[in-house]
Computed example of a mutant assay.
Amino acid sequence: MQLVCLVDLEYDYINPYDSASRINRAVLPEFITQGVLCFFLLITGHWAVLLLSLPYLYYNVTQYMQGKHLVDVTEIYRQLNPEKKKRFFKMAYLVILFIFSLFWLLLNVGDEYDD
């Protein structure tokens, strides 16, 4: 959704205020979801997936602590390309993590039925 808002802003389909408010509304739930996921991976003992998730969690925490997690409506046009690149990288990282998690799940389910 965040990436779509930035692309819409780039092509003038949406105004900067609406785009920034939609992006900022989605940031905190994304951070909380990632933190809860890492907590569940920790307590369930899925160490490989947890180790792959920790860099993303660390990035989110540092962005939040530095106050750089929200998009500024007055600076959004200047930050458009870096924000799009950041969102593309995050999306690619999450897709790779999802594929690895799915592979890990299927591998473990297959091992249970072999016994």
Rank of each mutant, 00 (worst) to 15 (best):
E83K: 14
I76S: 06
L106R: 05
Y56C: 12
L41C: 04
N24H: 01
R78V: 09
I14T: 11
I14W: 00
K68I: 10
Y17A: 02
A92Y: 14
L28E: 15
P29S: 11
D72L: 05
G110C: 04
L41Y: 07
S53M: 14
M1C: 06
Q34G: 00
K90F: 08
I76R: 05
K85Q: 14
M1H: 11
V71A: 08
V36L: 15
L70I: 04
G35N: 05
L105P: 02
S19Y: 04
L94M: 09
C5Q: 12
M1F: 10
V71T: 08
Q79D: 05
Y77N: 15
F40G: 01
Y56S: 15
A26S: 12
S53N: 12
L57V: 11
S53F: 12
Y17C: 08
L54F: 14
Y59N: 06
G110H: 10
D111H: 04
I14S: 05
N108A: 07
L107V: 07
R78W: 10
I32E: 15
R78G: 13
T62G: 03
G110A: 00
G45H: 02
F31M: 13
V109A: 09
F98L: 09
N15R: 02
N15Y: 07
L51S: 05
N81S: 15
L105V: 01
Y13M: 03
L50I: 08
L80Y: 03
T33A: 14
D12E: 09
L41N: 06
K86G: 15
V73E: 15
S21A: 12
L28Y: 13
L3C: 05
K68A: 14
L107T: 11
L50G: 09
L54N: 02
L52W: 01
L97N: 10
W104E: 15
E112R: 02
L9K: 12
Y58Q: 01
R22C: 10
